[in-house]
C-alpha cells in the first residue's frame, strides 16, 4: 500500500516537473518575442493579401456609418517594408476614392490619396499615426502596426480567454504615444491578438479591441471579424473581412499613380 502511495507521489512529482519543464520551454519566448511574432501574424500574413472589408462605425445612439473597401497589401520584407492600396466602394460620396501607402520600418509612411471628383492625386502628410482611420475607432497605427521596439513589454501571466490559452502582455510606450499602457491577450498557438486594452493618461481603460471570428484561410489563421470599442465615448467600429485571399501575386505596378487614377478592376471587384 505504502509502496503504491510512494509510487503515486513520485509519479505526480515527475509529471508536475515534466509539465513545468514544458511550460518553461514555452516561457523561452520573451515578451518581446511574443509581440514580434504577433505583429508578423497579424500584419504580415502571407506575402500579399487581397481583402474586401466592411467597417461599421456605430455611435452611442446606434447610428451606423459604413466604409466598404478593397484592400491590397504586398510585403517586401518580413516585418519591414509594405505597400498598401485601398479602393473605397462605400459610402457613395467617397466611392472610387483610392488610397495608397508605402510603409517603411524606420520612417513615416508615404501616402497618396486620389480624389475622383477633380481627378487629383494628392500626397498627404503621414505623421499622424494616432489619427482616426477613415473616422473609425481604429487609428492608422492600429491598421498598419507598431514597431515592437517602441514599447517595453512584460509577460504578466498566461491565462485562458474562452477556450484559448493566451499570453498576457503589458506594453508601456518608451516615448510619447496615444496610450500609456496596452494589455494584449495573444493566442499561444497562432500569436494573433485576441483582445487588447488601451489605457489613457488617467490610467483608465478607454479603448478595447476584440477578435470576434478567426478563420483558417489557406493555412493562415486570420481574424475575419474584429471590434474596437471606445468605452469612454460609447462609439465602436466593427470590421468584417468579407473575403480574404493570400499569396495572390499582386504586382509591384499596382502600387502606382496609374492605378490610383484608374483602379485595377480585376483586383478590386
Amino acid at each position: 500500500m505504502r509502496a503504491i502511495k510512494t509510487f503515486f507521489v513520485v509519479s505526480l512529482f515527475l509529471l508536475t516537473s515534466l509539465c513545468q519543464g514544458l511550460s518553461f520551454a514555452k516561457d523561452e519566448f520573451s515578451a518581446n518575442d511574443i509581440i514580434t511574432r504577433s505583429r508578423l501574424a497579424f500584419y504580415y500574413a502571407g506575402d500579399d493579401e487581397k481583402a474586401r472589408v466592411t467597417m461599421e462605425l456605430i455611435n452611442k445612439a446606434g447610428q451606423k456609418r459604413i466604409r466598404e473597401l478593397t484592400m491590397l497589401r504586398k510585403d517586401y520584407e518580413e516585418g519591414g517594408e509594405q505597400k498598401y492600396f485601398s479602393y473605397f466602394h462605400q459610402p457613395s460620396d467617397v466611392k472610387d476614392t483610392t488610397f495608397m501607402a508605402y510603409k517603411y520600418p524606420d520612417r513615416d509612411d508615404d501616402r497618396w490619396l486620389f480624389i475622383p471628383a477633380i481627378n487629383l492625386v494628392k500626397r498627404i502628410a503621414a505623421n499622424d499615426k494616432y489619427s482616426s482611420f477613415v473616422g473609425s475607432d481604429f487609428t492608422y497605427e492600429d491598421v498598419s502596426g507598431r514597431k515592437p521596439e517602441e514599447d517595453i513589454h512584460t509577460l504578466l501571466r498566461k491565462e485562458k480567454l474562452g477556450e484559448k490559452s493566451c499570453f498576457v502582455i503589458e506594453s508601456i510606450p518608451k516615448g510619447s504615444s496615444e496610450y500609456t499602457k496596452r494589455i494584449s491577450w495573444i493566442d499561444e498557438t497562432n500569436f494573433l491578438p485576441l483582445k487588447e486594452e488601451f489605457y489613457d493618461k488617467q490610467k483608465e481603460l478607454y479603448r478595447q479591441f476584440e477578435a470576434q471570428e478567426i478563420k483558417d484561410i489557406n493555412g493562415i489563421m486570420t481574424i475575419t471579424k474584429r471590434l474596437m470599442r471606445n468605452v469612454k465615448t460609447g462609439h465602436r467600429t466593427e470590421v468584417t473581412f468579407e473575403t480574404v485571399e493570400y499569396n495572390v501575386g499582386i504586382g509591384d505596378d499596382i502600387f502606382s499613380e496609374r492605378y490610383l487614377r484608374r483602379p485595377p478592376l480585376e483586383w478590386i471587384r
Binding site: 502628410a125 505623421n127 482616426s132
Partner: peptide
C-alpha cells in the same frame, strides 16, 4: 509644406 499633427489636425 504640409504637416499632420495628432488628433486629425493638419
Amino acid at each position: 509644406y504640409q504637416k499632420a499633427f495628432p488628433d486629425d489636425f493638419t
